[in-house]
Amino acid sequence: MSFELIGNVLIAGVLSGLVYGLMALGLSVIFGVVRVVNFAHGEMMTAAMFAAVVLFNTWGIDPFMAVIPVVVVFFALGYLLQRAIINPFITRPEHSQFMLLVAVAIIMVNALLIAFGPNARNVQVDYQLESFELGPLLVDAARLYAAGAALVCSAAVFSFFRFTMTGKAIRACADNHMGAKVVGLDIRHLYALTFGLGSACVAAAGCMMVLLVDVTPQLGPAYTLMAFVIVIVGGLGSMPGALLGGILIGVSEAGAGLFITPSAKSMVSFALLVVVLLLRPQGLLGKRP
Protein backbone atom coordinates (compact mmCIF):
# COMPACT_ATOMS: atom_id res chain seq x y z
CA MET A 1 0.00 0.00 0.00
CA SER A 2 1.60 3.22 -1.11
CA PHE A 3 2.30 6.25 0.98
CA GLU A 4 0.29 8.35 -1.47
CA LEU A 5 -2.80 6.21 -1.07
CA ILE A 6 -2.65 6.36 2.71
CA GLY A 7 -2.01 10.07 2.61
CA ASN A 8 -4.93 10.69 0.26
CA VAL A 9 -7.27 8.66 2.43
CA LEU A 10 -6.13 10.44 5.58
CA ILE A 11 -6.70 13.86 4.05
CA ALA A 12 -10.12 12.85 2.78
CA GLY A 13 -10.90 11.56 6.27
CA VAL A 14 -9.91 14.81 7.95
CA LEU A 15 -11.88 16.91 5.46
CA SER A 16 -15.06 14.81 5.71
CA GLY A 17 -14.51 14.74 9.45
CA LEU A 18 -14.81 18.51 9.62
CA VAL A 19 -18.25 18.31 8.00
CA TYR A 20 -19.24 15.53 10.44
CA GLY A 21 -17.89 17.73 13.19
CA LEU A 22 -20.16 20.63 12.21
CA MET A 23 -23.15 18.28 12.27
CA ALA A 24 -22.16 16.98 15.70
CA LEU A 25 -21.51 20.53 16.90
CA GLY A 26 -25.25 21.11 16.57
CA LEU A 27 -26.01 18.13 18.80
CA SER A 28 -23.38 19.18 21.29
CA VAL A 29 -24.64 22.76 21.55
CA ILE A 30 -28.21 21.56 22.11
CA PHE A 31 -27.21 19.04 24.76
CA GLY A 32 -24.78 21.42 26.44
CA VAL A 33 -27.47 24.03 27.03
CA VAL A 34 -30.92 22.45 26.86
CA ARG A 35 -29.75 19.09 28.29
CA VAL A 36 -31.90 17.22 25.80
CA VAL A 37 -30.37 14.58 23.56
CA ASN A 38 -31.67 15.24 20.07
CA PHE A 39 -32.50 11.77 18.79
CA ALA A 40 -33.82 13.31 15.57
CA HIS A 41 -30.47 14.89 14.72
CA GLY A 42 -29.62 12.63 11.79
CA GLU A 43 -33.11 13.04 10.39
CA MET A 44 -32.64 16.80 10.46
CA MET A 45 -29.36 16.22 8.61
CA THR A 46 -31.03 14.25 5.81
CA ALA A 47 -33.83 16.80 5.61
CA ALA A 48 -31.24 19.54 5.08
CA MET A 49 -29.49 17.41 2.47
CA PHE A 50 -32.76 17.00 0.58
CA ALA A 51 -33.37 20.73 0.82
CA ALA A 52 -29.99 21.38 -0.80
CA VAL A 53 -30.67 18.77 -3.49
CA VAL A 54 -34.03 20.32 -4.33
CA LEU A 55 -32.64 23.85 -4.48
CA PHE A 56 -29.89 22.65 -6.79
CA ASN A 57 -31.98 20.48 -9.09
CA THR A 58 -34.89 22.93 -9.37
CA TRP A 59 -33.19 26.31 -9.55
CA GLY A 60 -29.57 25.34 -10.01
CA ILE A 61 -28.56 26.94 -6.72
CA ASP A 62 -25.08 25.82 -5.74
CA PRO A 63 -25.03 24.02 -2.37
CA PHE A 64 -22.69 26.67 -0.98
CA MET A 65 -25.28 29.35 -1.82
CA ALA A 66 -28.10 27.11 -0.62
CA VAL A 67 -26.57 27.18 2.85
CA ILE A 68 -28.06 30.61 3.49
CA PRO A 69 -31.79 29.90 2.90
CA VAL A 70 -31.56 26.35 4.34
CA VAL A 71 -29.87 27.58 7.52
CA VAL A 72 -32.46 30.32 7.98
CA VAL A 73 -35.37 27.91 7.54
CA PHE A 74 -33.85 25.27 9.82
CA PHE A 75 -33.07 27.83 12.47
CA ALA A 76 -36.72 28.87 12.48
CA LEU A 77 -37.95 25.26 12.53
CA GLY A 78 -35.57 24.36 15.36
CA TYR A 79 -36.71 27.39 17.32
CA LEU A 80 -40.36 26.44 16.91
CA LEU A 81 -39.77 22.75 17.65
CA GLN A 82 -38.11 23.60 20.95
CA ARG A 83 -40.62 26.23 21.93
CA ALA A 84 -43.74 24.32 20.98
CA ILE A 85 -42.94 20.68 21.62
CA ILE A 86 -39.69 20.00 23.43
CA ASN A 87 -39.78 22.72 26.08
CA PRO A 88 -42.38 21.02 28.33
CA PHE A 89 -40.12 17.94 28.29
CA ILE A 90 -36.95 19.45 29.70
CA THR A 91 -37.92 18.47 33.24
CA ARG A 92 -39.22 15.02 32.26
CA PRO A 93 -37.14 11.85 32.58
CA GLU A 94 -34.71 10.93 29.84
CA HIS A 95 -36.75 8.08 28.41
CA SER A 96 -39.66 10.46 27.96
CA GLN A 97 -37.53 12.94 26.01
CA PHE A 98 -36.13 10.06 24.03
CA MET A 99 -39.62 8.88 23.04
CA LEU A 100 -40.66 12.35 21.99
CA LEU A 101 -37.68 12.82 19.70
CA VAL A 102 -37.96 9.29 18.34
CA ALA A 103 -41.53 10.15 17.37
CA VAL A 104 -40.29 13.33 15.68
CA ALA A 105 -37.62 11.27 13.91
CA ILE A 106 -40.13 8.68 12.67
CA ILE A 107 -42.34 11.44 11.29
CA MET A 108 -39.41 13.17 9.57
CA VAL A 109 -37.97 10.04 7.94
CA ASN A 110 -41.31 9.03 6.54
CA ALA A 111 -42.33 12.51 5.49
CA LEU A 112 -39.11 12.61 3.47
CA LEU A 113 -39.94 9.17 2.10
CA ILE A 114 -43.37 10.39 0.98
CA ALA A 115 -41.90 13.51 -0.59
CA PHE A 116 -38.84 12.06 -2.29
CA GLY A 117 -39.22 8.28 -2.46
CA PRO A 118 -36.61 5.76 -1.36
CA ASN A 119 -34.09 6.38 -4.15
CA ALA A 120 -30.75 8.09 -3.69
CA ARG A 121 -30.52 11.72 -4.80
CA ASN A 122 -27.44 13.85 -5.35
CA VAL A 123 -26.14 17.07 -6.82
CA GLN A 124 -23.69 17.26 -9.68
CA VAL A 125 -21.44 20.30 -9.87
CA ASP A 126 -18.33 20.58 -11.99
CA TYR A 127 -15.89 21.12 -9.10
CA GLN A 128 -16.78 17.66 -7.75
CA LEU A 129 -14.51 16.32 -10.51
CA GLU A 130 -11.61 18.69 -9.85
CA SER A 131 -8.76 18.11 -7.50
CA PHE A 132 -5.65 19.85 -6.30
CA GLU A 133 -2.18 18.37 -6.33
CA LEU A 134 -0.34 18.75 -3.08
CA GLY A 135 3.06 17.31 -3.81
CA PRO A 136 2.36 13.67 -4.51
CA LEU A 137 -1.09 13.87 -2.91
CA LEU A 138 -4.47 14.60 -4.49
CA VAL A 139 -7.12 16.58 -2.66
CA ASP A 140 -10.73 16.62 -3.93
CA ALA A 141 -11.81 20.18 -4.54
CA ALA A 142 -15.41 19.67 -3.38
CA ARG A 143 -14.25 18.02 -0.18
CA LEU A 144 -11.80 20.82 0.49
CA TYR A 145 -14.42 23.53 -0.08
CA ALA A 146 -16.92 21.69 2.11
CA ALA A 147 -14.40 21.33 4.93
CA GLY A 148 -13.47 25.00 4.61
CA ALA A 149 -17.09 26.05 4.80
CA ALA A 150 -17.63 23.78 7.80
CA LEU A 151 -14.71 25.46 9.54
CA VAL A 152 -16.12 28.91 8.78
CA CYS A 153 -19.54 27.93 10.15
CA SER A 154 -17.99 26.43 13.28
CA ALA A 155 -15.92 29.56 13.81
CA ALA A 156 -19.10 31.62 13.49
CA VAL A 157 -20.77 29.51 16.18
CA PHE A 158 -17.73 29.80 18.46
CA SER A 159 -17.67 33.57 18.07
CA PHE A 160 -21.39 33.83 18.69
CA PHE A 161 -20.98 32.15 22.07
CA ARG A 162 -17.80 34.00 22.89
CA PHE A 163 -18.49 37.56 21.84
CA THR A 164 -22.22 38.31 21.60
CA MET A 165 -24.41 39.18 24.57
CA THR A 166 -26.98 36.56 23.56
CA GLY A 167 -24.27 33.92 23.31
CA LYS A 168 -23.01 34.81 26.76
CA ALA A 169 -26.54 34.71 28.15
CA ILE A 170 -27.01 31.22 26.72
CA ARG A 171 -23.76 30.09 28.31
CA ALA A 172 -24.92 31.55 31.60
CA CYS A 173 -28.11 29.49 31.27
CA ALA A 174 -26.11 26.34 30.68
CA ASP A 175 -23.80 26.98 33.63
CA ASN A 176 -26.42 27.96 36.14
CA HIS A 177 -30.05 27.49 35.28
CA MET A 178 -31.36 28.94 38.54
CA GLY A 179 -28.99 31.88 38.48
CA ALA A 180 -29.96 32.72 34.93
CA LYS A 181 -33.61 32.69 35.95
CA VAL A 182 -32.92 34.90 38.95
CA VAL A 183 -31.20 37.61 36.89
CA GLY A 184 -34.23 37.64 34.62
CA LEU A 185 -33.03 35.87 31.47
CA ASP A 186 -35.83 34.56 29.27
CA ILE A 187 -34.86 30.91 29.48
CA ARG A 188 -37.55 29.65 27.11
CA HIS A 189 -36.40 32.04 24.43
CA LEU A 190 -32.72 31.27 24.97
CA TYR A 191 -33.33 27.50 24.87
CA ALA A 192 -35.29 27.88 21.68
CA LEU A 193 -32.51 30.02 20.20
CA THR A 194 -30.03 27.31 21.12
CA PHE A 195 -32.11 24.59 19.52
CA GLY A 196 -32.44 26.81 16.45
CA LEU A 197 -28.70 27.31 16.38
CA GLY A 198 -28.09 23.57 16.71
CA SER A 199 -30.49 22.97 13.84
CA ALA A 200 -28.71 25.62 11.80
CA CYS A 201 -25.40 23.78 12.30
CA VAL A 202 -26.95 20.56 11.01
CA ALA A 203 -28.51 22.42 8.11
CA ALA A 204 -25.18 23.87 7.05
CA ALA A 205 -23.48 20.50 7.44
CA GLY A 206 -26.23 18.90 5.35
CA CYS A 207 -25.70 21.35 2.50
CA MET A 208 -22.01 20.48 2.44
CA MET A 209 -22.57 16.77 2.83
CA VAL A 210 -24.55 16.52 -0.44
CA LEU A 211 -21.34 17.35 -2.25
CA LEU A 212 -19.72 14.24 -0.74
CA VAL A 213 -22.42 11.55 -0.64
CA ASP A 214 -25.83 10.65 -2.08
CA VAL A 215 -28.81 11.06 0.19
CA THR A 216 -31.76 8.77 0.95
CA PRO A 217 -34.42 9.24 3.66
CA GLN A 218 -33.24 6.09 5.45
CA LEU A 219 -29.82 7.60 6.18
CA GLY A 220 -31.24 9.52 9.15
CA PRO A 221 -30.68 7.02 11.98
CA ALA A 222 -27.12 6.34 10.79
CA TYR A 223 -26.31 10.06 10.99
CA THR A 224 -27.95 10.29 14.40
CA LEU A 225 -25.70 7.52 15.64
CA MET A 226 -22.65 9.07 14.03
CA ALA A 227 -23.37 12.41 15.69
CA PHE A 228 -23.69 10.65 19.08
CA VAL A 229 -20.43 8.81 18.62
CA ILE A 230 -18.65 12.04 17.68
CA VAL A 231 -19.90 14.11 20.59
CA ILE A 232 -19.26 11.38 23.14
CA VAL A 233 -15.75 10.84 21.83
CA GLY A 234 -15.08 14.58 21.75
CA GLY A 235 -16.97 15.38 24.94
CA LEU A 236 -20.72 16.09 25.17
CA GLY A 237 -21.21 19.83 25.43
CA SER A 238 -17.67 20.72 24.32
CA MET A 239 -17.59 22.66 21.05
CA PRO A 240 -13.94 22.03 20.12
CA GLY A 241 -14.56 18.43 21.18
CA ALA A 242 -17.23 18.05 18.50
CA LEU A 243 -14.80 19.11 15.77
CA LEU A 244 -12.01 16.93 17.13
CA GLY A 245 -14.41 13.99 17.41
CA GLY A 246 -15.59 14.61 13.86
CA ILE A 247 -12.04 14.53 12.52
CA LEU A 248 -11.22 11.37 14.52
CA ILE A 249 -14.30 9.58 13.24
CA GLY A 250 -13.70 10.81 9.70
CA VAL A 251 -10.12 9.54 9.75
CA SER A 252 -10.93 6.25 11.48
CA GLU A 253 -13.74 5.49 9.03
CA ALA A 254 -11.56 6.32 6.06
CA GLY A 255 -8.74 4.24 7.55
CA ALA A 256 -11.03 1.30 8.27
CA GLY A 257 -12.33 1.47 4.71
CA LEU A 258 -8.80 1.23 3.45
CA PHE A 259 -7.27 -1.32 5.82
CA ILE A 260 -10.23 -3.56 6.73
CA THR A 261 -13.32 -3.36 4.56
CA PRO A 262 -15.55 -0.38 3.77
CA SER A 263 -18.66 -2.13 5.15
CA ALA A 264 -17.03 -2.46 8.59
CA LYS A 265 -16.02 1.16 8.88
CA SER A 266 -18.56 2.13 11.53
CA MET A 267 -17.34 -0.79 13.63
CA VAL A 268 -14.15 1.13 14.23
CA SER A 269 -16.07 4.21 15.35
CA PHE A 270 -18.22 2.16 17.74
CA ALA A 271 -15.13 0.50 19.14
CA LEU A 272 -13.62 3.97 19.61
CA LEU A 273 -16.82 5.07 21.36
CA VAL A 274 -16.73 2.14 23.79
CA VAL A 275 -13.08 2.72 24.62
CA VAL A 276 -13.62 6.43 25.23
CA LEU A 277 -16.74 5.82 27.34
CA LEU A 278 -14.83 3.45 29.57
CA LEU A 279 -11.54 5.29 29.90
CA ARG A 280 -12.73 8.88 29.70
CA PRO A 281 -16.52 9.00 30.02
CA GLN A 282 -16.57 12.78 29.81
CA GLY A 283 -14.99 12.58 26.31
CA LEU A 284 -11.59 13.71 25.08
CA LEU A 285 -12.16 17.43 25.61
CA GLY A 286 -15.09 17.26 28.02
CA LYS A 287 -14.97 18.60 31.54
CA ARG A 288 -15.26 16.19 34.44
CA PRO A 289 -18.80 16.39 35.78
Partner: peptide
Amino acid sequence: ELPGIKQVFYGSCLLLVTMFLP
Protein backbone atom coordinates in the same frame (compact mmCIF):
# COMPACT_ATOMS: atom_id res chain seq x y z
CA GLU B 1 -51.16 4.42 -1.09
CA LEU B 2 -48.01 6.24 -0.23
CA PRO B 3 -45.05 4.47 1.30
CA GLY B 4 -44.37 6.11 4.64
CA ILE B 5 -47.80 7.70 5.26
CA LYS B 6 -48.59 4.92 7.71
CA GLN B 7 -45.47 5.60 9.73
CA VAL B 8 -46.16 9.32 9.77
CA PHE B 9 -49.50 8.60 11.44
CA TYR B 10 -47.84 6.12 13.75
CA GLY B 11 -45.19 8.67 14.73
CA SER B 12 -47.83 11.34 15.29
CA CYS B 13 -49.77 9.06 17.63
CA LEU B 14 -46.58 8.35 19.58
CA LEU B 15 -45.94 12.07 19.78
CA LEU B 16 -49.40 12.75 21.16
CA VAL B 17 -49.27 9.93 23.72
CA THR B 18 -45.84 11.04 24.94
CA MET B 19 -46.99 14.62 25.23
CA PHE B 20 -50.31 14.06 26.92
CA LEU B 21 -49.94 10.76 28.81
CA PRO B 22 -46.40 10.94 30.19
